[in-house]
Amino acid sequence: MIVLAAKRLVAMLLIMLVVSFILFSLFEADKMAVAGKVLGPYSSIEQREIWLSQNGYDEPFLSRYTQWVGGALHGDFGDSLQYKVPVSELLADRLKNTGILALIFFLIMIPLSLTLGVLAGMKEGSWLDRIISIFSVLTTSIPEFVTATFLTGLFVYTWQLLPGTSSMTGGFSWQEMILPVMVLVIYDFGYVTRMTRASMAEVMTSQYIRTAILKGLPYKRVIMRHALRNALIAPFTVIVLQLNWLLSGLVVVEVFFAYKGFGSLLVDAALFGDIYVIEACVMVAVFIAVFSQFISDIGYTLLNPRIRFS
């Protein structure tokens, strides 16, 4: 386990190094345009060059990159060009907001999709299974911003029940959380439901379930004690891997509802060319991707003794 963790850590650091270097060099080619965005469209070339040299862009590219890496190792990701504050402050605040959104989402999505998946997988081919399966394909097939469009149309414009923005300008508000969470749940629950269903259906055809039913155990007990534990291994890894998938979903939802989170920060930064913010955000994304992969591998071995002991 420790060897696996060490290997993953080294791979992650290597990937981070390569990715940050590529990003740095991409935006290096574009620094005149960045200066133009900071100083405004009517700034002259001379002004932009002065700004660049004042901000240390005259130094060689490699020395600036190593400086940035050194800073990043100490948690100092430089200053945002767009917001003129340290990136670490900005990022911490945005990550907290996204964390809240993701937490509420998981608290609703996990019980919902596991229950539906187990109900559908218990009796493969039953009408309940059909309905749940079709419904989950439908909702998963529709991209988030289309779901968001329909929900906004209904809840904001037609029924006027909910606010169409989640910018939280007046402090935290539950009402503003409803639509983003709803869109994420509708988009995401189908996938986990289908995985749970497939896993449950497979377990239900196994020998030990047949034995348990034939030896006269109550059906409820067979499901709760024998089937569930084995059926939930596959969905567990899927849910953890959803973390990475969720980041993409969050970008769209946060931009749509103007939620001040990680995703909208990244889009703003990418549009502005705010290199230090992009670097920091991408490092976080890479970390989440590698970390969730690692957790899902470990969880998988813990839940499944056959893998652990082989």
């Binding site: 791979a11 290597l14 990937i15 990715v19 990244l266 991408v282 994304a285 590698v290």
Partner: peptide, 22 residues
Amino acid sequence: SFIANIFLSFPFIILCIIIVAT
């Protein structure tokens, strides 16, 4: 595989956004 892993560690849309924005 290493090159692939670099790009796989990005969420799909985020990679697209960065490439198109640049």
